[in-house]
């Protein structure tokens, strides 16, 4: 069945988008990172490699960390998506404890990889609130950080896990 509309829920708000090749429509070839950044104005997810290798564009979709450059928007009908912009408490704007832990442990340098790394870590903690160091590293194996903030990121995730207990 040909479908010409899709609905995405992003950070709790739902968006109806038309599929097509005209201005303002979502082309069948468009990737989710593009839709998030260009159509919805959510520029927190960063595009770097555009082929699923670096994790800078990671968002959480139905509980799973996914590289949004490898997902076609047209495939996302009915999905629940959380981006870095959705981690703060919508009412109080309080940071998610994981974000706070990244600040406390200075777990970034340039920060380009950071939204992706935080989202991957967030998905991990949701599934496994008490990961050990190996599980943290394993979960982040697809995230590239060229400034080498890895040592501090591991500390930050460990501490967030510990505080969450």
């Amino acid at each position: 069945m040909k479908q010409d509309k899709i609905r995405l829920t992003v950070n709790g708000s739902s968006h109806d988008l038309s599929i097509g090749v005209n201005l303002g429509e979502i082309a069948p070839s468009e990737t989710l990172v593009h839709t998030l950044r260009e159509t919805l104005g959510l520029t927190g997810a960063k595009e770097s490699c555009d082929h699923g290798a670096c994790g800078c564009c990671t968002v959480i979709m139905d509980g799973q960390a996914v590289p949004s450059c490898m997902v076609l928007t047209v495939e996302c009908h009915g999905k629940e998506i959380t981006t870095i912009e959705g981690l703060q408490d919508p009412e109080t704007e309080a940071l998610d404890p994981l974000q706070q832990s990244f600040i406390d442990n200075m777990a970034f340098q340039c920060g380009y990889c950071t939204p992706g790394i935080i989202m991957t870590s967030k998905a991990l903690l949701e599934k496994n609130p008490r990961p050990d160091e190996e599980e943290i590293k394993e979960a982040l194996a697809g995230n590239f950080c060229r400034c080498i903030s890895q040592y501090q990121v591991i500390e930050a995730v460990k501490q967030a896990a510990k505080n969450g207990r």
Binding site: T43, Q88, L95, Q100, T114
Partner: peptide, 19 residues
């Protein structure tokens, strides 16, 4: 001490050229 731009970076608000 937290970097002055720390909150922007962990919330995705920090502006890069592509934004």
């Amino acid at each position: 001490l937290p970097r002055k731009d720390a909150t922007d970076i962990v919330t995705g608000r920090a502006t890069f050229l592509d934004d």
